[in-house]
Design a protein around this nucleic acid. Structure first.
Length: 584
RNA sequence: GGUUCGGUAGUUCAGUUUGGUUAGAAUACGUGCCUGUCACGCACGGGGUCGCGGGUUCGAGUCCCGUCCGGACCGCCA
């Protein structure tokens, strides 16, 4: 037997037992007459003790063991002289009789410890070693627990987990597809699914009225800390439901997961319309852990010869409570922040409401004290506050001020990663106008149903039509989104027409779905949660990479296995693929 | 496609602003000493294509140009 116990379970109740343990050498401490060695496995660390006086031979063997060697030991569980309260097995140690080296190990390129000396890059290259470290290992275990609890809840709620194919058909809408050549069908390609969207709708037609799947999805777009080319969704669909049923069901899932995995309980999750989210936070995924909502002061600041405001479509401000003591340097810092091209503001105006009640602004030249008072009143400012104003085109200004708000929130430590503020954002617009191609695109996807009371706008002002679409946002991160789908053929035809599909295009790309809908499609809708993001947000971490066992880097590369890579000419020949000129 | 930060010992970094002797620190590693450590301690030691290519200069880790690689972000992600 290679082991009788793991390295995490022995305690005083096992005293004097003969045990066999196997694991990796974490580190050894050679004190001369004694050597201590930490043996590690997935479950923890157990201290092995060697005494030169009582057993010189085994003590010498122990001195020769290197870091990360895989060993098996036999010995006796003994109470320690000096205990270690920091680890579960800290009351005991093993007096070892026999060491068996199962495998030697090269010296690892970075230290396998909770706080490692290794940087991101080298740890990714040796990811299998990084996964030995507690912080990374615990993330993977956390993910496992979360997936089990998802399945528990969904199963209890009557959902069936059904797998859908990975080799499907490419559609031009939405994200870029990963494509896979078909050897048996030369010149033709599969696409990997961006989501099982159409399949889950077909399952509704089939009568599986509650479906879910924890499923890999693929999108060939540029990456971010919270975006990977392959990622995992909790994908769900329900038939014979309205929006309210879906929100309630998945509010229940969210509460269940937080309760079971984090032992955190929520009241009901608040709801906010898309329009309010944009008006108050300039963002369709607001972080509502803190207030600092936008105030529109456009109507009260114009006409004072301040050209920048006079020319602006919108002048919006936030109140940075208690920041009147910001130094000139700190304010310049914020100005630089909003002027970064990623944020895109051309400047920032501040009004400082000093503790003594006086006002100081960067636009004193244009605004009298009385003018400024009107602004401070409108913005609900009191002594000690700092008002920050941005102006310009409405959308750009909203975006920039939203960034600024989050930045101030971070600086004021209002974005506590141990606090969780979930939010439903509802009533998304159905369509989005794209300037470049001068046409409407579906904001969610082309099967999203419009709100019945807005259908009359479809012919006259389609941009105003709201959809039965909703997002779940936690701490400013979009965790999930979904909609009530269109299930009537006539309405679907109309939407495709609005999106610029000819009937032939629509038939070509989505014919299988539209045809299915002619055979008795029930009313249905669904939602999909980004599972990796849920893991990271619940853990208060920004990067989803930490929760994926083998993630890809910024350029979509797996630096461990060095993929993607070229393939042999023979493989290309079989697929009838000829490579064009590859840009330098 | 764009913005920005970085690449120096196995590893993490300092040194680059203002070019100048033999490129440092910590940690890891090796050797020795040490009987209660648990980030053990102490002493000694080995370890460098300063990402790569070119240029300026008497002289380049340091300045200039190019290039590759990595991180963060914008665009993109129905």
């Amino acid at each position: 037997m290679l082991r009788t116990h793991t390295c995490g379970e022995l305690n005083l109740s096992h005293l004097h037992q003969k045990v066999t343990l196997s694991g990796w050498v974490q580190r050894s401490r050679d004190l001369g007459g004694m050597t201590f060695l930490d043996l590690r496995d997935r479950y923890g660390i157990t201290q092995l003790a060697f005494n030169e006086e009582t057993n010189a031979d085994i003590c010498n063997q122990a001195r020769k063991l290197g870091r990360e060697w895989v060993i098996q030991v036999q010995g006796t569980v003994t109470e320690r002289f000096s205990k270690n309260k920091n680890i579960a097995t800290g009351d005991i140690e093993i007096i070892v009789d026999i060491i068996n080296v199962l495998n030697q190990a090269k010296l690892p390129p970075f230290t396998i410890e909770d706080i490692t000396d290794g940087g991101e890059e080298i740890r990714m290259k040796y990811r299998y070693l990084d996964l030995r470290r507690n912080p990374v290992k615990n993330n993977i275990i956390f993910r496992h627990k979360l997936s089990i609890e998802v399945r528990n809840y969904m199963n209890e709620a009557g959902f069936l987990e059904i797998e859908t194919p990975f080799l499907i058909k490419s559609t031009p809408e939405g994200a870029r597809d990963f494509i896979v050549p078909s050897r048996m069908n030369p010149g033709q390609f599969y696409a990997l699914p961006q989501s099982p969207q159409t399949f889950k709708q077909l399952l509704m037609v089939s009568g599986f009225d509650r479906y879910f799947q924890i499923v890999r999805c693929f999108r060939d777009e540029d990456l971010r800390a919270d975006r990977q080319p392959e990622f995992t969704q909790i994908d769900c669909e329900m038939a014979f439901v309205e929006q309210e049923d879906i929100l309630n069901t998945f509010e229940g899932l969210t509460k269940h997961l937080f309760k079971k995995v984090k032992n955190i309980e929520f009241d009901s999750i608040p709801r906010m319309t898309y329009a309010d989210a944009m008006r108050l936070y300039g963002n369709d995924k607001p972080d509502i852990r803190f207030e600092m909502t936008f105030v529109d002061i456009t109507s009260i600041v114009k006409g004072k010869e301040f050209k920048i405001f006079d020319d602006a479509e919108a002048i919006l401000g936030i109140n940075a409570n208690g920041c009147a003591n910001y130094t000139r340097k700190q304010i310049d810092d914020l100005t630089d922040f909003v002027k970064r091209p990623q944020v895109g503001a051309s400047g920032m105006v501040y009004i400082r409401f000093n503790e003594d009640g006086s006002l100081k602004s960067s636009v004193d030249k244009f605004y009298s004290e009385d003018d400024l008072r009107i602004i401070t009143e409108k913005m609900n400012a009191k002594a000690g506050d700092l008002l920050l104003l941005l102006s310009g085109k409405t959308e750009k200004t909203q975006k920039a001020l939203s960034e600024l708000r989050l930045e101030i929130g971070s600086r004021l430590k209002l974005r506590d990663s141990s606090k969780f503020a979930p939010l439903w954002v509802i009533d998304f617009p159905m369509l989005e106008w794209d300037e470049e191609t001068a046409r409407f695109y579906a904001k969610h996807h082309p099967f999203t149903s419009p709100k019945p009371e807005d259908i009359y706008l479809m012919d006259t002002n389609p941009g105003l039509v709201r959809a039965n679409a909703y997002d779940l946002v936690i701490n400013g991160v979009e965790i999930g989104g979904g909609s009530i789908r269109i299930f009537e053929k006539e309405l679907q035809r109309k939407i495709f027409n609005l999106l610029g599909f000819t009937p032939e295009d629509a038939q070509e790309q989505f014919g299988f779905l539209m045809n299915a809908f002619e055979f008795g499609a029930p009313p249905h809708g669904g939602i999909a949660f980004g599972f990796d993001r849920l893991c990271s947000v619940m853990s208060g971490v920004d990067s989803i990479r930490d929760f994926i066992a083998f993630p890809k880097n910024n350029n979509g590369r797996d630096v461990m296995i060095d993929a993607p890579a070229g393939v042999s000419q023979q493989q290309l020949n079989e697929l009838f693929i000829e490579l064009g000129k590859i840009p330098e």
